[in-house]
Each structure stands twice: as structure tokens, then as C-alpha cells.
């Protein structure tokens, strides 16, 4: 781990230790003794030393955000994306409506109809981002890995309708090559193939 990657290490629990707390003084005499002890031990200067050493060591942890960015976890849940099939470029969404059903803030709506080949297609897909709480249930429930959470967390806008339409979320056809397979919420685990019981086929 080097550079910005180290900040992603959240596995810090092994460094925890218990702080010893001395008993609280009860009598004035004890309190006086504590004052004397602390003064003679120059406890105040310990604090000063720590801060001074930090300054001299100059180990700055600041990420200067717009210029520098932390890499975000694949499970990060930012504004949704609708993915396409990598080979054909067809939309993955089959309009099953599970995301609509599971959405706990009730902010997804889909219009569907049969297309010219008789397949179900979503003609329109919207998420009301004024309501969305980015819980990730929609991505988790999606059987086709079609609705996923993108990595683009910079979504300030003048209109709340922004980012919410199908054309905003769907991978543009010319960007198909840049589309990344989604490893986050609801994506199959690396060992998924091993866990599946195969259906016997007669052919």
C-alpha cells in the first residue's frame, strides 16, 4: 500500500489498546496531591511536545480534494448507471420491475412495452434523486446487473431532475468500450460459478 491507497485501509482494529484511567481523587488532599504530581511531572508539556513533534515531522494527511481524489471502494454507492451488454450493446434492463418494487423510498419508475421482436423493453426509466437514499437495494436485486451504482459521486446540479432519466444513466453506445463490469453491490461473487447447481440439459 502506498500513496493514497493507504487511506483505504480500514483494518485498524488490531491497534486498539485499553487506556488506563487512574482513580478519580475523592478528598481535597488527594486532589492536591494530584495537582502537585501533575505539575511536577510537567504533564502540560507532554501535550506541547506532541503537537510540536507533529509539526516538525510534517506528515500531512490532507487530500486536496478537487485536485487530488481518493480512489473509492467498488461498493461505493453513487449515482446509478444503466449498463449495456458488452458484446451486443443492447440494454441489459429487461424491465422486470424488481428495483421499482424493492425501492424503499419508492423513487424508481419504469415504463415498459413489448418491442418489435416481442421482447419486453423499458421505454423510460427514472430515479427521483430527490428521494433516493442510495441504499443499493435496486442494484442488489437486479437480476441482469443492469442498474448499478456508478462511481461518480460529484453530482451537484441546478435541477433536481438532472441525472435521473434513462439517457443520463445509460451507457452511451460509443462509450461501450469504457463500460466497466460492476464489482459492487449485488454483483456475483468471484466464486459464483462454483456455487451454482447446473440444470441438466438433454442436448
Amino acid at each position: 500500500m502506498n500513496g493514497l491507497e493507504q487511506f483505504k485501509d480500514r483494518n485498524v482494529s488490531q491497534n486498539y489498546y485499553r487506556v488506563k484511567i487512574e482513580p478519580y481523587p475523592k478528598t481535597p488532599w488527594e486532589r492536591f496531591k494530584r495537582v502537585v504530581r501533575r505539575s511536577l511531572r510537567l504533564e502540560l508539556f507532554v501535550g506541547l511536545k506532541i503537537t510540536l513533534m507533529e509539526m516538525l515531522r510534517f506528515k500531512i494527511h490532507t487530500i486536496q480534494y478537487p485536485k487530488e481524489k481518493l480512489p473509492i471502494s467498488p461498493r461505493y454507492r453513487a449515482v446509478h448507471k444503466l449498463l449495456r451488454l458488452l458484446e451486443s450493446g443492447n440494454e441489459r434492463c429487461i424491465g422486470c420491475g424488481l428495483c421499482e418494487k424493492i425501492c424503499i423510498s419508492n423513487c424508481i419508475r419504469i415504463d415498459t412495452r413489448p418491442d418489435e421482436n416481442g421482447r419486453k423493453i423499458p421505454t423510460e426509466y427514472t430515479i427521483n434523486f430527490g428521494r433516493c437514499i442510495f441504499c443499493g437495494y435496486c442494484a442488489e436485486v437486479c437480476p441482469e446487473l443492469a442498474i448499478v451504482h456508478g462511481q461518480d459521486y460529484e453530482h451537484a446540479s441546478e435541477q433536481r431532475a438532472q441525472f435521473a432519466l434513462k439517457e443520463d444513466m445509460l451507457t452511451p453506445l460509443d462509450k461501450l468500450k469504457e463500460q466497466k463490469e460492476y464489482p459492487g453491490f449485488g454483483a456475483p461473487t468471484p466464486a459464483a460459478d462454483k456455487l451454482i447447481k447446473k440444470t441438466p440439459l438433454a442436448y
Partner: peptide
């Protein structure tokens, strides 16, 4: 600035 450095920050940049 000094406060920031002592707190491992950069302060105004």
C-alpha cells in the same frame, strides 16, 4: 497554518 501543521493538515491552500 501552525494549527493545521500541528494537526497534520495543510490549512488554507
Amino acid at each position: 497554518k501552525v494549527l493545521a501543521f500541528m494537526q497534520r493538515r495543510l490549512g488554507p491552500m
